[in-house]
Design a protein around this nucleic acid. Sequence first.
DNA 1: AATGAATGAGTCTTCATTCAT
DNA 2: TATGAATGAAGACTCATTCAT
Lengths: 209, 209, 209, 209
Amino acid sequence: MPAQPPKALKPRKTPSQPRSRVTVDAIFEATIQVLLSQGMVGLTSTGVAERAGVSVGTMYQYFPNKQSLVYALNERFLTTLAERVEATCAQMHGRPVAEAAEALIDTYWAAKTERPELTRALYRSVAELETDALLHAFATRVDKATTDMFCRASDFSSPDASEVNVLLTTVIYGSVRNVFERGLGPEEILGLKSELKAMCRAYLATVGK
Amino acid sequence: MPAQPPKALKPRKTPSQPRSRVTVDAIFEATIQVLLSQGMVGLTSTGVAERAGVSVGTMYQYFPNKQSLVYALNERFLTTLAERVEATCAQMHGRPVAEAAEALIDTYWAAKTERPELTRALYRSVAELETDALLHAFATRVDKATTDMFCRASDFSSPDASEVNVLLTTVIYGSVRNVFERGLGPEEILGLKSELKAMCRAYLATVGK
Amino acid sequence: MPAQPPKALKPRKTPSQPRSRVTVDAIFEATIQVLLSQGMVGLTSTGVAERAGVSVGTMYQYFPNKQSLVYALNERFLTTLAERVEATCAQMHGRPVAEAAEALIDTYWAAKTERPELTRALYRSVAELETDALLHAFATRVDKATTDMFCRASDFSSPDASEVNVLLTTVIYGSVRNVFERGLGPEEILGLKSELKAMCRAYLATVGK
Amino acid sequence: MPAQPPKALKPRKTPSQPRSRVTVDAIFEATIQVLLSQGMVGLTSTGVAERAGVSVGTMYQYFPNKQSLVYALNERFLTTLAERVEATCAQMHGRPVAEAAEALIDTYWAAKTERPELTRALYRSVAELETDALLHAFATRVDKATTDMFCRASDFSSPDASEVNVLLTTVIYGSVRNVFERGLGPEEILGLKSELKAMCRAYLATVGK
DNA sequence: AATGAATGAGTCTTCATTCAT
DNA sequence: TATGAATGAAGACTCATTCAT
C-alpha cells in the first residue's frame, strides 16, 4: 500500500536487524500511547522519544520527521485492515451477496472497534497529514478485493458491480466513522450494526438479480 | 446550539456596533480563506488577521484564542445546516417516509456540497478541537427534527422511529463524509447519491409498514 | 514633595472641577483595588479603567501613562505620611528625645499598619518605578521635621542631631518595612514595637546628654 | 533553603554534564548583568539568552520561565548569605552578646554591600516574585543560627532569647535595606553602621543580664 | 550508532496607547 | 469631552530538527 508516500514521509530505514525492530516497535507503541493520552496536539517528538525510552536522535534515525511517524502508524493500521478485509473477501468468494456484505460489515466493524480510542485518535490524526495518497491507495486495494467478492457472488450478476461496491463500502465505512463521531453507546452500536445489515440486504434484494 | 462552548473557546464580545460587526465578518471570511489555502496547519493568528485586514490585537478582542475562531466557524456552519435540515423536516411532515428520507439526503448533500473545499476544511478542523460538545448539540438538535419527521410520516408506524432515525442519519451523514474522504468525482457522487436513496427506499419498504 | 516627578510621570491635569475630582478619585480607588487583588503584574490600564467605571480614553486624560498612576498613588500616600509625621514632630517640640522618638515610632507604625495589604502593595509597586526622586523628596522633607524635633528636644544637646536622626529614622523605617517582609503576626509585631522603643530609649540615654 | 519553590519556579533540570554547568553559569551571570543594566523591566528572555551567548531554547531547558531565573538567582544569594551568617554565628558561640550582635552586623552588612548594585537589583526583583516562601525559608534558617548564638552568649541569660533575636535581626536587616533605599553615601553608611552597633550595645546592656 | 544539549524560526498573546466617532 | 475599537510593538515560550561528543 505504501504507494509512494509523499517523499518526506518515508521512514528512513527499514529495520532489519533485531535491535532496530525492537526500537521501532517501541517508538510505535509510544506514539500510540501519547496519541491516546495527549492527542495530536500533545504529540511532540521529544515526548514520543522519551516514552519510547530512546533519544530523539535515535528516533530521527528511523523517522525523518514527526509526520512520518504518524504516517507510518496509519499505514500500519490500514495495511492490517486491508489484509483482514481481503481475507474476508477471499473466504466469501462464491457466497450470496447479502452474506458477503454482512461479512464485510462484521470484519470492518470489528477492526475499527477493537481499540476504539486508538481508532478515534487515528481518525483525527489523519486530518493533519497529507494522507490523501495513503487513503487512496488503501481504498484502491480494498476496493479491488470487495468488488471481486461481489462479482463472484453466487447470486449476483449486476452489470455494474463496481457501482454496487462503491455504494456499499461508502455506506459501511462512513457509518462506522459516524458512529465514532457521535459517540454512541455500545447498545446503540449493536442495534445500528444489525439494522445496517438489514438495510444492505434490502438493497441487494432489489438489485442485479 | 452554542451549548456551552468549552469556556476557553467562547467569543470574547459579541459585536454590537456596526464597526465591530464588519470586523468580525472580515475575520470569519479570512479564516475561511486561510483554512482553504493553507489548512489548519497554516492557520496562524497573524495570517488570519492580515488577511482580514485587521490587527492581531483586534482579532483577539473578539476571539480569545485561535481555536475559538475555528470553533465559531464550525458553530456557524452547523447552525445553518441545522436550520436547513429543520426546514426540510417541517416541509416533509405527513409525507411518505421514503420521500422524507430522500429529501433529507438532498438537503444534507446539498449543504455539504455547495462549497466542497470548505466542507473538507471544516471536517478536518474539527479534529483539532474540543468540539465534542458542539457536535453533540448539533446531533441532538437535528435528531429531534428528523425523528419527528419520520414519526409523522403518512405511511409510517414503526414503534421505534428513533432507531430508524439513528440508522438513516448515521448512514447519510457518514456516507457524505466518506465521499469527501475518498475524493470521488462528480459523476460518481451523483450515482452514489441516487443509489443511496434507493437503498433507503428498499430498507424502509421492509420496515414499520 | 512632587519635587520634579520624572517628566513623563506628571499627571496631565490637576483636577479642579468637581466632576474631574470624582473621576480621579474613582481611578485612584480602582488602582488600589486592582493592586490589592492582582498585584502590580495584574495592573493593566484597561483593568483599572473598567473598575473605575470610566473609559480608557478618559483615564489617559488624567494620567499620561500607567506608571504615572502608580506614581501618583505613592505620592499621595507619602504626602499624607509626611504630613502625619510633621504633625507629630510639631507636637513633640520641646519634649524629651526619648518621648519624641517613641512618638515617631507610633506615628510611622500606625500609618503603615492601618491598611497593611495596601502598604505591602505600595512597597512592591515602588520597586518597578523610577521613584528614587520621589522617595528622596519624601526623605528630605521628613528628615527636616524629625531633625528639627530632635534638635529642640528638652534634654538633647548633641552636636550632631543629624546623625542621630539618620540612625533613628533608618532603624525605624527599616524595621517597619522588615516587619512586612517577614509577615510577622500581630502579637509579635506589638512586642517588636515596644522593644524597638526600648532600644531607642537605651541608645538615646547613652548619647548627647 | 529551596523549601519548595512554587512549583512553576523550579528549575527544569539540574545540570550534570560539564557543558550544561557552563551554560547555566553563563545564564546566571547574564541575568545579573541584565538586571544591573536594565532592571527587572528590561529583563527579557531573549535579552538574557543573548547576553549569555546561548539560544532562548537552551535557556528554557533549564528554567521553565523568566521568573524562575530570578528566583534561582535570589535563592543562590540567599543561600550564600545564610551560610555566611551561620559561619559567623558558629564562630561567635560563647562570646558576649554585644560582640555577637556586632559580628552579625558586620557580616550581614558586608554581604549586602560587596556588590551594592546587585543588592539593589535583587531587592527590587523580589517584589515581582512569589518569593514569600523563599524569604520565609531564609528567615527561618538564619533565625535558628542567630538565636542559637544569642542563647549561648557568655553573658546572656534572657528567658526569651527569641524575642531579642527578632528585634535585633529586624532592626539590622531593615536598616540595611533602608540604607539602599535612601541611597546614602559611603561615609554616612559607615557612621550609621557604627551607631547601629552602639544602639545594639546600649539595648543589650539593659536586657537579660 | 546513540545521545541529548543546543538551536532559533515561528507562534501566540498581551496591553499600553492612540484616535475616529 | 468621553468612548472604546483598533493598533502593533514587544515578549514569552515551544518544539522540530541538528550535530558535536
